[in-house]
Design a protein around this nucleic acid. Structure first.
Length: 803
RNA sequence: GCCCGGGUGGCGGAAUAGGCAGACGCGUUGGGCUUAAAACCCAAUGGCCUACCAGAGGCCGUGAGGGUUCGACUCCCUCCCCGGGCACCA
């Protein structure tokens, strides 16, 4: 027999919903605030999965806890509803996303209600709502205005299956992130956003953030800053010069060749006549391959130009090569080859039989034992610089070359500008007009939102252009400037656009004058706790930080970072310890679990499985433990009603107060698994004891954030019209806890031999006396001489003996 | 290759300013209830050994080896394994 969870959960969900979720409504400007944010879901046709439940339960516990602590809690939810999956599904089923996406959203919302999640639904948002994306477009235009948006023909990655361009971030191992098709290369005009202008700040400000170290590291690597020098090499018999970038100027005397990236303008310009054929052959072959494919090639390749550069320090002749191991988009697109001190250059030199000259060594005046030697060391074979350590040598050589105008300090980042165009229907239209006379003409604010047209067919054109291109009625416009015939931009924004600023809109979701009122932003920002999956470590989280900083620069938001604290929940694997997937058939459906055990059990089980951040696998049997626990509470509650406890048992009091302290600490540290363990321990402890109603309801309050339905139901048996959300979180009586007797462990030579119970203020002398009187201890100390005692207050007495 | 995590019973996991290893839960075993099963309740449950009418006791044990310490899951050194991220970025 189990407790009537279905009845209870339905009952309270109905009551909570009844007056528009007023219980959970965040009030602007009212007292101390806390903003607890979830990563909003993409409402797919699949419905919520147990991974969502994990993160959303965690934040729900926090939200309910902080409400009881008297905080003004902002805990909103919304829908990231643009994006490829919806469009792909739409194409497959011949339906318009505008009709089925709202249905998905409804289902998601219903599931969230079913879980008892306490969102402030009055602030619900949807990225595909024109009233929302109006502001996404508005912000884009602001970026355009500030010169952060530019159009460029770029060799883009193209997925032949999705028929769309992809950002570098959307490619995994040379394959489309979504459909796993190998990507191709295609040349298209693309809108870019100059995120690189923010590279340094995005890097620096990571320091301020209370984020998991691995996420910060991932962002650092993604931004990939390196500091070095640009050095100019003159080309023999030519006016052209080659500018190279190096972080290892100390190795310059070991440079024995120069390499240009295939795309480098000089690659086609400088080859000697006899070599032109080879070079063109090579370039043609290389440039048609997608970047990723090129990187996957095992064999290093290259071609000699027949030309030589002049070493700026020695005057030596260095052959100029072209190879695709040098990237055009990084640094200056050209390098000096130092085979003795760089593994790639070494490989290249070996393959093409180029000179290898060691100039740095781990020991002074000695050749390195093996090549390539890539560490810093001491210079050799470097004339005046011999004997200097690498760091000093970089400075000295740099200074010398700078004075001669042959080098300058330079900083480069791996981060590249953000390709912002998608050749897709289901996204925010880019609010720009292309006029043959006036060029690019941005829409004015009054013309926003530029709505996505409702249409029957929006198949991809297959040429890589957007389906919008075929919708003549929408695409053809008069130029706002010259009134002549013009066309709208047919590309749409990437899915990331809407999620870059959604947390701002929650703060003022219905404002139609601005994306959010500044005073309100000032009150609520920054987001105090942001919970979501680690898969967004570099994409969403980097874009959102960039977007926020941009708004900050325009004085539109009050903080320079959006999310103070970030927590990544670990993924939940199937019972077979494999990633849940339909094809494996190991997917756990939350609806079924709720059906069988109730939402409270599902919530609590997911929190009990282990630490929030850990990867965990679902245990089909394990959930029963939590279910039993809740049943036990239900049964015990029936007994409590009949008890007439005049004076509470001291032990019960002490244990309850310890529990109050423990649960609060664990919730704040988001250690929900141990909080639940402690509550279970307490139940085991009181189960055969009588307890006062007051103490019992205190326990119920502790339970409430985790299992809100059953807690609220039990509470209502005693207080008919009181909502636990509005009740005060109990505070522990610390005096009671500290006055308790302490168990002292008696060790002999570090091994536990006995334990005694003493008042907490007992000192070493009293405890020593007690310990030495114990029979057990006497036995162990026979024929032994005591050397010393080690005493740790309230914990341990260690008796150390000689021999 | 580089950078982060992490290795604790049959399983998920507790315990780290160094101080009772294995909380809590699952599973298993035995018992109760039942015509029976499920559910539920009670008890035992790291390994090895000694003892037993009953009570009890010893040794080993947190991936491996070494070190520091009165005392190490926790700190230091060496190594092995697993998970994740990045990967021709000059």
């Amino acid at each position: 027999m189990s407790y009537p969870f279905k009845k209870i959960e339905k009952k309270w969900q109905k009551i909570w919903k009844k007056n528009k979720y007023k219980l959970w409504q965040a009030q602007d400007f009212k007292g101390k605030k806390i903003y607890i944010l979830d990563m909003f879901p993409y409402p797919s046709g699949e419905g919520l999965h147990v991974g969502h439940v994990e993160g959303y339960t965690a934040t729900d516990i926090l939200a309910r806890y902080y409400r009881m602590r008297g905080y003004n809690v902002l805990h909103p939810m919304g829908w990231d509803a643009f994006g490829l999956p919806a469009e792909n599904y739409a194409l497959k089923m011949k339906k318009n996303p505008m009709t089925f996406v709202p249905k998905n959203i409804k289902r998601y919302k219903k599931q969230m209600e079913m879980l008892g999640l306490s969102y402030d639904w009055n602030r619900e948002i949807n990225t595909t709502d024109p009233n929302y994306y109006k502001w996404t477009q508005w912000m884009f235009l602001k970026m355009y205005e500030k010169g952060l948006v530019y159009e460029k023909t770029a060799p883009i990655n193209f997925c032949p299956s999705c028929k769309t361009g992809l950002a570098n971030e959307e490619i995994v191992n040379g394959r489309c992130e979504r459909c796993n098709t190998p990507t191709q290369i295609k040349y298209l005009n693309q809108w870019h956003i100059r995120i690189t202008a923010y590279a340094e700040r995005l890097l620096q400000d990571l320091e301020k953030l209370d984020w998991p170290e691995n996420v910060k590291t991932m962002q650092r690597n993604w931004i990939g800053k390196s500091e070095g020098y640009e050095v100019t090499f003159k080309i023999l018999g030519s006016d052209e010069e080659i500018n190279i970038f190096t972080t290892r100027l100390d190795t310059i005397f070991g440079a024995t060749f120069i390499v240009l990236a295939p795309e480098h303008p000089l690659s086609t310009k400088i080859p000697e006549e006899d070599y032109i054929f080879n070079v063109e052959n090579y370039l043609e072959n290389i440039l048609k391959k997608p970047e990723r494919e090129r990187k996957m090639e095992e064999e290093i390749s290259g071609v000699f130009t027949g030309r030589f550069a002049v070493h700026p320090l020695t005057g030596e002749k260095l052959p100029i090569w072209i190879s695709d191991y040098v990237f055009y988009y990084y640094g200056t697109g050209a390098i000096m080859g130092v085979p003795a001190h760089d593994a790639r250059d070494y490989r290249f030199a070996k393959k093409f039989d180029l000179k290898i000259k060691p100039v740095v060594s781990p020991e002074k005046n000695k050749e390195p034992q093996s090549l390539p030697f890539e560490d810093y060391g001491y210079l050799i074979n470097s004339f005046d610089y011999d004997g200097l350590d690498s760091k000093t040598a970089i400075e000295e050589i740099g200074k010398f070359l700078e004075e001669k105008g042959l080098a300058k300090k330079a900083v480069y980042y791996k981060l590249r500008d953000w390709i912002f165009s998608r050749q897709r229907y289901w996204g925010e239209p880019i609010p720009l007009i292309k006029c043959p006379k006036c060029g690019i003409v941005p829409l004015s604010e009054k013309e926003l939102p530029l709505k996505l047209p409702k249409v029957k067919s929006y198949e991809p054109t297959g040429t890589g252009e957007s389906p919008l291109k075929n919708i003549k009625k929408w695409i053809k416009v008069k130029c706002p400037k010259c009134k002549g015939d013009a066309e709208r931009e047919s590309h749409t924004m990437p899915q990331w656009a809407g999620s870059c600023w959604y947390y701002l809109r929650y703060i003022d979701p219905k404002n139609n004058k601005e994306f959010a009122n500044f005073k309100k932003l000032k009150y609520w920002l920054p987001v105090d706790i942001y919970v979501g999956g680690v898969e967004h470590a570099v994409l969403h989280l980097l874009y959102a930080r960039f977007w926020h900083k941009f708004l900050y620069d325009l004085n539109l938001v009050p903080t320079d970072e959006p999310f103070t604290k970030l927590v990544n929940q670990g993924i939940i694997l199937g019972p077979d310890r494999e990633k849940m997937s339909k094809s494996r058939g190991n997917v756990i459906n939350p609806d079924e679990i709720v059906q069988k055990y109730g939402a409270d059990t599902l919530r609590m089980y997911e929190m009990f499985m282990g630490p929030l951040e850990d990867v965990k696998s679902w245990d089909t049997h394990g959930i029963i433990g939590v279910f039993r626990f809740l049943n036990k509470i239900w049964e015990y509650n029936k007994k409590v009603k009949k008890y007439k406890v005049e004076k509470e048992n001291l032990e019960v009091k002490i244990n309850l107060n310890k529990l109050i302290k423990k649960v609060a600490e664990d919730i704040e540290a988001m250690k929900f698994n141990t909080a639940i363990s402690s509550m279970m321990e307490f139940m085991n402890f009181v189960y055969d004891k009588k307890i006062s109603i007051k103490s019992w309801l205190t326990f119920i309050k502790l339970l409430f954030p985790f299992a809100p339905h059953i807690a609220q139901e039990i509470y209502s048996h005693y207080y008919k019209n009181k909502f636990l959300d509005r009740e005060k979180w109990p505070l522990p009586d610390l005096k009671l806890i500290s006055e308790e007797e302490r168990k002292i462990i008696i060790e002999i030579n570090g091994k536990k031999r006995d334990e005694i119970l003493v008042p907490s203020d007992y000192q070493i002398e009293e405890i020593k006396k007690l310990a030495l009187e114990r029979e057990k201890i006497k036995k162990f100390l026979q024929n032994k001489t005591i050397e010393k005692f080690i005493f740790v207050q309230n914990k341990i007495l260690n008796i150390v003996t000689k021999d």
